[in-house]
Design a protein around this nucleic acid. Structure first.
Length: 672
DNA sequence: GCTGTCAAAGTTTTT
DNA sequence: CTTTGACAGC
């Protein structure tokens, strides 16, 4: 049955099946609802087979949310075979089947940003982090634009970027030698294969009967081409997007993909969802005012049935400490006065480091909070250490994993020996692991190093005999591994008691999570490792939902979420809009990727995303001074605040009635 | 030649 | 607060 709560436009979007459809869905207009309802409609009413329907998202969170909603709409049998996941997860599945056509072995590794950084650093032979970072970025942008080294070389012929092109080539060669792909490749290689291999293309064109894409405005060229190739045959797809919420241009996304869609599919059906079910009108008005300063591709105006709502407050703070305190005090007051739950609040900010000071104050006030986004659990050193062993077991040619496993915990093999082994391996044209047995016979090796390397070799060799174990047996293998390397001992030796304990806890959490995964899905280590590479944060979504806690999130990570009461902090020139270094990146034809104006526009959309997260109340703060590195810099109010209130009286923030000390005293008395 | 200690720096956003 | 690179000692 079609949900009777759908409005006319939503219904149209769900039921339109006569060809390609673009649903322009403003913030809070029921976009996820439309996608999930449409999937249900396809399967239940139109008799699409589940394994023929594919829904693509950008984040794991969005995918999970859709899966959860679908679980309430479809029977377990109907859910089976249905693909709802990120582009990258889909890419992994695609490459598992088709990787051979791209020269990949079945057990290829997936490198994370750290690994690629290390590779670029090695190739550039520099310790200048800025240089490495920007080179890495450039390669990533090229990849996202579906440009391979040859194409780039042709376009940059004889120019200063030659060195970078050369780097790109070596980088690709290195990955190939490791039998590894990076994140970008998970989308780039499928797109490329679809274009270049007609057998592969046909296979998938026949498999995918209906395709849905969420957050379409954030697709890059690879994703666009991949989608285009997938639907080439049937032209049955729905993409949902909002050009005003495009905030990933820095990752190669281009809003022009919306425009291109019209050109490539002349019969494209355009459906606009403009009724907002989320926010009170005042908040929408503010959002509309801000976004109006951007050029409008598709004229679109959000409106709401809800009441007008209370004033939007703007608070000027002396510095970020004062700001964090202001947030904490307001949270205390609001919770008492409105009888709300903690989870009804979110504090949103431009960059992760702003969370730190907030955390301090929230802890002090004993306000429970959860951090979404931010530093990935899987980026933590201790987690990567353990994963290195697993990656090595899954793919012994994974040199970055080999190096990390061999050197952490330290085993008496260092820089020099490693370099020699590296030279030895590249002379043989193989990986470090392949070279190791012969290298052990070499004369230049000293006794201690030889002994250490032999031990390591035998240790890994032994584990390798068990690498195909599944489920419980594989889980036991993890325990064995951890005990054998005495990682706990290493941690407590390396760090003070408290940090060591917290790291060890992380390892135990990881271990627990891995084991559950192994047993639940009956995976072996190889499958597990590939899966884990795509997970950015430890999956405890249900707990987060149940938890009554204030949400702390970056603006990027908050997209798609909504909260009754929102604090948007750090709204200053330089921070929002953010002004970074004037890095010069190039897409093609040596055109810089983004002009100053374009950057401001993206920042404005970010502001728009922030405002439209709020359902009922919105509070904005900015600081006169902010600590940046070692010095205090003075800040100005963001232009976006001015734009928000343009032609309107600006609400003056009311001073909190109690000050921080009162609250702390009160709290203290509670706990004494 | 390896490893531990010390000082310096911090990257906007994420798969 | 964490991570990384430089350096000195074992």
């Amino acid at each position: 049955m079609l949900d009777p709560n759908l409005n006319k436009k939503q219904q149209e979007a769900v039921q339109y099946l006569s060809g390609p459809a673009l649903v322009l869905a403003g913030a809070g207009s029921g976009k996820t609802k439309v996608i999930t309802q449409k999937i249900a409609y396809l399967i239940q009413q139109c008799h699409y087979e589940s394994q023929r329907v594919f829904a693509l998202t950008f984040t794991n969170k969005a995918a999970r949310e859709m899966q959860e909603r679908l679980a309430t709409l479809l029977s377990p049998a109907q859910l089976r075979g249905l693909f709802v996941g990120t582009f990258h997860a889909f890419g992994l599945r695609f490459l598992r089947e088709e990787g051979a056509h791209a020269g990949l072995k079945a057990q290829f590794s997936i490198l994370d940003a750290h690994d690629s950084y290390a590779i670029v650093q090695e190739l550039l032979n520099t310790t200048d982090r800025g240089r490495v970072f920007s080179a890495q970025q450039q390669i990533s942008l090229w990849k996202n634009a579906l440009l391979d080294p040859d194409t780039v070389a042709a376009q940059f012929n004889g120019k200063a970027l030659n060195e970078l092109v050369h780097l790109y080539r070596s980088y690709e060669a290195t990955l190939n030698a490791y039998q590894a792909v990076d994140f970008d490749d998970l989308v780039r290689l499928p797109a490329k294969l679809m274009q270049e291999n007609s057998q592969v293309a046909q296979r998938w064109q026949h498999r995918v009967h209906y395709l849905l894409v969420d957050e379409y405005q954030d697709t890059n060229v690879c994703q666009y081409e991949w989608v285009r190739a997938l639907v080439h045959l049937r032209q049955q797809f729905t993409v949902v997007g909002d050009d005003d919420q495009a905030i990933y241009a820095w990752r190669g996304a281009t809003v022009e993909n919306l425009q291109r869609l019209k050109d490539d599919f002349p019969n494209l059906k355009l459906i606009k969802l403009e009724q907002n079910y989320r926010s009170v009108q005042r908040i929408l008005t503010a959002a509309n005012r801000v976004i109006q300063h951007n050029p409008q591709v598709f004229g679109k105006r959000l409106w709401s049935d809800l009441s007008y709502g209370e004033e939007i407050q703007v608070q000027e703070c002396a510095n970020e400490r004062a700001e964090a305190e202001w947030v904490a005090i307001n949270l205390m007051q609001e919770r008492t006065m409105r009888q709300t739950r903690w989870r009804d609040f979110a504090v949103l900010y431009r960059s992760n480091h702003q969370a730190r000071i907030l955390e301090q104050f929230l802890r002090q006030f004993r306000i429970p909070y959860v951090l979404t986004g931010g530093q990935s659990f899987f980026a933590k050193a201790e987690v990567r250490d353990l994963m290195a062993y697993l990656r090595l077991l899954a793919n012994t040619d994974d040199d970055p994993a080999f190096i990390r496993a061999l050197t952490t915990p330290r085993k008496g093999v260092g820089q020099t020996t490693l370099e020699r082994l590296g030279q030895f391996a590249s002379a043989q044209g193989g990986s470090l692991w392949q070279a190791l047995p012969t290298f052990l016979l070499s004369q230049s090796l000293n006794a201690p190093q030889k002994k250490a390397l032999t031990q390591f070799y035998e240790f890994i060799q032994r584990l390798l005999t068990q690498v195909h174990f599944q489920g419980t047996q594989a889980a036991e293998l993890l325990d064995t591994l951890l005990r054998a390397i005495d990682y706990e001992g290493y941690l407590f030796n390396q760090y003070d008691e408290r940090p060591a304990l917290s790291r060890w806890q992380n390892v135990l959490d990881l271990l627990d999570w891995l084991k559950r995964k192994l047993v639940a899905d009956q995976l072996n280590i190889i499958e597990l490792v590939q899966h884990v590479s795509l997970v950015t944060i430890l999956d405890r979504s249900e707990k987060d939902e149940e938890l009554d806690a204030v949400h702390l999130s970056t603006l990027h990570a908050a997209k798609g979420l909504e909260f009754p009461h929102v604090f948007l902090i750090g709204v200053e020139e330089g921070l929002l809009p953010h002004m970074g270094r004037e890095d010069e990146f190039y897409a093609a034809n040596e055109e810089p990727v983004a002009s100053f104006t374009q950057r401001i526009q993206e920042e404005r959309r970010l502001m728009y995303v922030g405002i439209t997260r709020a359902q009922r109340s919105l509070r904005i703060s900015w600081c006169q001074q902010r600590r940046r590195g070692r010095e205090d810099i003075s800040c100005e109010r963001s232009r976006f605040i001015t734009e928000m209130f343009h032609g309107q009286e600006q609400a003056q923030a009311t001073q909190p009635k109690k000050d921080a000390d009162d609250y702390l005293a009160e709290l203290k008395s509670l706990f004494d």
